[in-house]
Design a protein around this nucleic acid. Structure first.
Lengths: 210, 210
DNA sequence: TTGTACTGAGCGAACGCTCGGTCGATCCTT
DNA sequence: AAGGATCGACCGAGCGTTCGCTCAGTACAA
């Protein structure tokens, strides 16, 4: 199950990349304003700078756009993550740093992450698995990092705990976007990161902020 | 900002309650299958057991249905919570129990919670605040419980940490629904509850399951 | 001239919502 | 008690509009 290819009527591969890039950018902006369903293909075409006919040279259906958007956002997040996380050996400091980097990326791309997060469910049963797989791959990044930290002896966790922890980290990042209507009022990103990291590692019973 | 009243053309208040109950039940089932936008008012009417004309005697617009659905789900969760959580004094055991109860409720109502969670965003800017307020009230329940535990001296947390912890608990519950495609494969509800509770209280650094 | 990217008027299905009308229950009058 | 008037819940055909998508035609580069 590799990346799903969306067929296009246009031959020039470079041009496809370019046009789809324009499409995705326009679509994200519209989706974050009105959501997927309330956004029309005409609006997307217009905001992309070409006609509705041209739009349909590069996709088969409106849903294809949503898929491309989700795919692109995941790639964006992953790229930024890989840029900044060197995955050599595992250590608690590494985990902390990775969380901070991840939260930063989520914050930078908050609109995109939120849009994707709220709209994936509109994907067809056929396309959904491809996107969920991406989410699992993201989880796996943290899972691997924690697992190595366990192997280094800095943490004592079983397989299942490692997995759940990875899920929690991911969700705490996403939560910064989908609960921002409340969290933003209470905390800055730095405060949020620091507190979540502390709670994650030390829980509430041991009091020793670092 | 009390509960928003949705006007109806029908006079009989009892009947309104009854019909809206039927409507909500039908709508939740359809929403969880196809989402709000892909569900038609005709489908809702039919599944409710009356005609499209009658449907519109009890609401003004399709969005009213979504609002009623969200409202009803919140009330359902809160009712079940209050039933089972006696809020006398605060203690760590109380917090643990409250989490377990909450996770159980979320599990019982997973379809409803998931639907609400995925569709609130489709509410108009006018109706949204009423629903977000409900979410804050839910958070406040846990906030209060934790605060009292702090006051009892069983926990040492500042105001902001208490708040964040309450948010985390709520999200961990919701997460059980919106990540069930993955979590369900890994854990039973009991395992999930136990592990999340432990991580929440003790973090990953101290190893002592109870 | 041929191939390819692009255009946008137009098609047809679907959808939210309305409104004229039906009909049983209830009230009023004699 | 009977007949008529009124009420109000319920109905569903149909209106107006929107929206995803198509395709016959154009522009232009090679």
């Amino acid at each position: 199950m590799a990346r799903k290819e969306v067929p296009s009527l246009v031959k020039d591969e470079k041009l496809i990349q370019k046009r789809r890039g324009e499409m995705i950018k326009a679509a994200v902006n519209l989706f974050k304003e009105n959501g997927f369903h309330r956004t029309t293909t005409r609006e997307i075409a217009k905001a992309s700078g070409f006609s509705i006919g041209t739009l349909y040279e590069y996709i088969r259906s409106k849903e294809d756009i949503l898929y491309l958007v989700c795919d692109s956002i995941y790639e964006g997040v992953r790229e930024k993550l890989n840029e900044q996380i060197g995955m050599t050996e595992g250590s608690i400091d590494h985990v902390k740093k990775a969380i901070a980097v991840y939260f930063n990326v989520v914050d930078e791309m908050q609109d995109e992450v939120l849009v994707m997060y709220q709209e994936v469910k509109s994907l067809s049963r056929e396309a959904l698995p491809y996107v969920l797989k991406k989410e699992l791959e993201m989880t796996a990044i943290f899972e691997e990092l924690i697992k190595q930290t366990v192997e280094q002896g800095e943490l004592d966790l079983c397989e299942e705990e490692v997995k759940l922890l990875a899920h929690n980290i991911l969700v705490h990042g996403q939560m910064w976007t989908f609960r921002r209507w409340s969290l933003r009022k209470e905390y800055s990103l730095e405060e949020y990161t620091k507190m979540q990291t502390h709670l994650l590692l030390y829980g509430v019973k041991s009091k020793s902020f670092t």
